[in-house]
């Protein structure tokens, strides 16, 4: 591994800023409380209190960390509804919600990238598709997902499709686009000479796709998959916002209804860990595949 020094310095700076901001943003509430009780309050008392509020404007990092721990390890191992005592994941804990979001993300990502690759192959091999598909793909991404997601869910619900599928479709809706753009570029990356070479062998279009265009597009594919998996994750969370049931998006919205800021932040931590993990997994597959292909990343 590389040196952790610079990373730790950055983390330290962020934590310091975070604590500073927590003190400043939460101080007003303490002053109001003290004012109502008719007491005078100085900074020496305010500072420790700002870090231990139940519903702070901005929770301090250690509060978020404690909540995260309580909602994962604490809930599953020690809680009555946790996996240790009940045999299934607790619906209060973050692990279940993360799993629900993860499965919808993966399904949507698979649909989206598969669809994106097929579209790209069509665009590269068919003039009519080349002229007609791309503008629609671009137009599809200009529609705010927050606006269209609830409608897709309502429409699908009315025809009896509920649960994982609607979320996955919205995730796919966001993730196919980077894959199309990247793959069109990748499939067109072989130069004229390489295409001429296949012509001298009288190779068919399918042989050209399989032997030249697809392998040549791999670096482009993985770059778009990294963007795609992140987009897919965001799509799933947005799709979960209007839904009941489980999922990190549902959990975020519930937290904001009830002013549970610490819980919201703990959920955000879970979401960012999951997203970072997804991108990292794609990245490690990328370096393995490209290394095996002799194109070391």
């Amino acid at each position: 591994m590389k040196s952790f020094g610079p990373v730790l310095v950055v983390v330290g700076c962020i934590l310091a800023l975070w604590y500073g901001a927590a003190v400043l943003m939460n101080a007003q509430w303490e002053r109001d409380q003290a004012g109502r009780a008719g007491e005078a309050i100085g900074w020496a008392q305010i500072v420790p209190k700002t870090m231990a509020q139940e519903r702070p404007v901005l929770p301090a990092p250690h509060q978020v960390a404690a909540e995260f721990w309580a909602l994962t390890w604490g809930e599953e191992v020690g809680g009555r509804r946790g996996i240790v005592q009940s045999g299934s994941l607790s619906n209060r804990g973050l692990v279940l919600h993360a799993w629900v979001t993860f499965s919808a993300t993966m399904l949507g990502f698979a649909i989206g990238s598969g669809f994106g690759i097929l579209l790209a192959v069509g665009i590269v091999h068919n003039r009519a598709m080349d002229a007609s598909v791309m503008p629609w793909a671009i137009a599809s991404q200009t529609i705010p997902i927050v606006a269209i997601a609830p409608m897709i869910i309502v429409v699908l619900n009315s025809v009896g499709v509920a649960g994982l599928i609607p979320k996955a479709i919205i995730a796919a809706y966001l993730s196919f686009f980077p894959v199309v753009v990247g793959m069109v570029k990748g499939l067109r990356s072989p130069d004229g000479m390489q295409l001429d070479l296949l012509r001298t062998y009288n190779a068919s279009a399918a042989q050209g796709l399989w032997n030249l265009r697809l392998p040549a597009s791999m670096p482009y594919l993985f770059a778009s998959l990294k963007v795609g998996v992140a987009a897919s994750f965001v799509g799933t969370i947005v799709a979960e916002l209007p839904l009941g049931g489980a999922g990190l998006g549902t959990r975020l919205l519930a937290g904001s209804y009830y002013g549970q800021t610490i819980q919201i932040w703990a959920t955000l931590v879970m979401a960012s860990l999951l997203a970072a993990g997804l991108v990292a997994v794609v990245g490690s597959i990328q370096s393995r595949v490209l290394a095996r292909m002799g194109m070391g990343a």
Binding site: M193, Q194, D196, L197, R199, T200, Y201, N202, N211, L212, P215, A216, M218, M293, G294, M295
Partner: peptide
């Protein structure tokens, strides 16, 4: 060409890196 009557060598080797 369709009968694959010739082999063609280009200016660059153009080997597939993979």
């Amino acid at each position: 060409r369709q009968a694959r009557a010739y082999g063609y060598v280009f200016q660059a080797a153009g080997l597939y890196p993979w």
